[in-house]
Design a protein around this nucleic acid. Structure first.
Length: 513
RNA sequence: GGCGGGGUAGCUCAGUUGGUUAGAGCGCAGGACUCAUAAGCCUGAGGUCAGUGGUUCGAUCCCACUUCCCGCUACCA
């Protein structure tokens, strides 16, 4: 049976240019996608842009252009980001596409038919400047005016006709589902937040708007557009051509293996989305993972603090792979993480240049000088060689298991430890002192080359370009990379040529003042 | 306010279902080597595991209180 894996990023809201948070979600998703790919899964990796809503409509109006044209431009910057980040996404969906509209309207009809959507009135204290509604306890009287306590802006009582989704009806089924599927929401700490939120009681959800027009029309009521979440979340299905359940994409990839998202939109993915799906009698995704935020120093990045680290600028300055490596290694996955140039530079120098890059270099240089630039042919493993080589084979299932539990930190720690171990092995074996024992020298070189190959395979999901560069030593390409083959201790073809490669990572010169 | 998570080496973080000397990486100091991007290897310094009190033969880990930080507490996404 084929193994299928469907991973999604959030679809990004293109009201501003891409920032580090977008890059982070995408890079992590790409890590999983690439890992599953080399572990022989069929992978469907979806990302895209969420293009409807008042903000987009207004931004377009400001520029005096059609909203779709506006979206075309900005969506393109997100497509570019995917390329810049070297993502292996197999699709890029836009909520303004026909295929998406079709799916959303179909889903709407199903929900309406099942009596999960009804027409009523939405009312509340609305602040035009905040574009937000407030509850009674969030406003106060100041000299006869009602104002929002948090923003001090004026609010007015608004009543608007709106369709509602009967979210209230799904509280109990959701709680049951969480209980019977303990892995549905991750990480654990945030799962508790979701559960306590649902336990506190769910109100029906407004799912349409009359106040603006930039969106998907409600079927049979042109005055309304379908409001955000019912529109946006459905992208995960529309990309698989739902409702065509005979479609091969849908058959293979639904239910999704994992929706990877930021913690800020966890509720929508862990409450609204499964509620919609339950109501429509569609299977639920297997997992929703809400990762943390990337902070700059101690603080959340914001324009006013001037501490924004633009992923594009970082990439231009340091390269893509160092950023990917940093975000995957230095962030304790699930928690918030920090990024600073200083720490990024430390990471590049010690891990990538000194540890991995230098290992590749020292073994190849040694082999070129002492083994006629070939993978040694005559090789006889000793205990210490087999011991270090077999560790990889013995950990294959362990690593798979950790990946399935999103334990990214284990994965990268495993690699780093392997690098230390490899450098130590080469040191301890002292092949440069074995020039009168060529069998031993060859065996040490072969073993170390095998380890470099294994580690480079392991690094492929994290730093694909650099991994591929390193594998040029052995004339190996992307299609040769396979996770199971890490268990093979004689994968390299003996007597084949070893290529000298350029330095993988240049060290960053640091000022010592 | 309510509910939840957390305060562990200079820095970033693991960890302990309570049990002799608390871990890693980076940074720092010293040493032996020389194949390599002056990289790698070895050794070391450095912590009252937020504070106080309690349970226990024994607590960094359990309980209570104090203090500080953070998250959630419904329709911006």
């Amino acid at each position: 049976m084929d193994k299928n894996f469907y991973i999604t990023t959030p679809i990004y809201y293109p009201s501003a240019k891409p920032h580090m948070g977008h890059a982070y979600s995408s890079i992590i998703a790409d890590f999983f996608a690439r890992f599953k790919k080399i572990d022989d899964y069929n992978v469907h990796f979806l990302t895209g842009t969420d293009e409807h809503g008042l903000k987009i409509q207004r931004s377009a109006e400001k520029q005096g252009i059609d909203p779709l044209e506006f979206c075309n431009q900005i969506s393109e910057t997100f497509r570019d980001l995917s390329k810049t980040l070297n993502l292996t996404n197999t699709d890029f969906i836009r909520t303004t596409e026909k295929r998406h509209k079709k799916t959303v309207q179909h889903l709407w009809n199903v929900l309406e038919k099942n009596d999960d959507i009804y027409l009523s009135k939405y009312s509340g204290w609305y602040s035009v400047s905040d574009e937000a509604f407030y509850n009674d306890d969030e406003i106060e009287d100041v000299e006869g005016d009602k104002i929002a306590i948090s923003s001090k802006s004026k609010v007015e009582w608004i009543e608007e006709e709106s369709y509602f989704f009967r979210l209230s009806k799904w509280g109990k089924p959701l709680l049951d589902y969480y209980q019977s599927h303990p892995d549905f929401i991750a990480p654990e700490s945030r799962k508790n937040e979701v559960i306590s939120f649902v336990k506190s009681g769910l109100k029906d959800l407004s799912v349409s708007r009359k106040s603006f027009s930039w969106g998907i029309k409600v079927p049979n009521n042109k005055d309304h557009v379908i409001y955000v979440w019912l529109d946006a979340l459905t992208n995960y299905l529309s990309a698989l051509n739902y409702p065509n359940s005979n479609d091969q994409l849908f058959k293979n990839f639904w239910p999704a293996s994992i929706h990877l998202i930021g913690k800020d939109i966890l509720r929508f993915h862990a409450v609204y989305w499964p509620a919609f799906l339950l109501a429509a009698k569609i299977e639920l995704p297997l997992k929703v993972y809400g990762h943390g935020w990337i902070l700059s120093g101690e603080e959340k990045m914001s324009k006013s603090k001037g501490n924004i680290l633009d992923p594009i600028e970082i990439i231009n300055q340091y390269g893509l792979d160092p950023l990917r490596y940093y975000l995957i290694k230095e962030v304790s996955f699930g928690n918030d993480g920090n990024i600073s140039q200083e720490r990024l530079e430390d990471c590049i120098n010690s891990d990538l240049a000194n540890n991995y890059g230098n290992l590749c270099q020292r073994v190849t240089a040694f082999a070129i000088k002492n083994c006629e630039s070939k993978i040694p042919n005559k090789v006889k493993f000793q205990k210490e060689d087999i011991e270090i080589l077999d560790k990889y084979k013995n950990n294959l299932d362990n690593i798979r298991d950790k990946i399935d539990n999103q334990n990214i930190n284990f994965y990268i720690d495993y690699i780093i430890n392997s690098l230390f171990e490899a450098n130590k092995y080469f040191n301890d074996q002292e092949p440069w002192k074995k020039k009168d024992d060529l069998l031993r020298l060859n065996t040490i070189v072969f073993t170390t080359l095998e380890i470099v190959r294994k580690i480079s395979f392991l690094l492929y999901p994290i730093i694909p370009n650099s991994s591929l560069k390193a594998l040029k030593i052995f004339n190996l390409g992307e299609s040769d990379i396979n996770f199971s083959s890490i268990g093979n201790n004689e994968f390299l073809i003996k007597d084949s040529k070893i290529n000298k490669i350029d330095i993988l990572f240049k060290k960053i010169e640091k000022n010592n003042d």
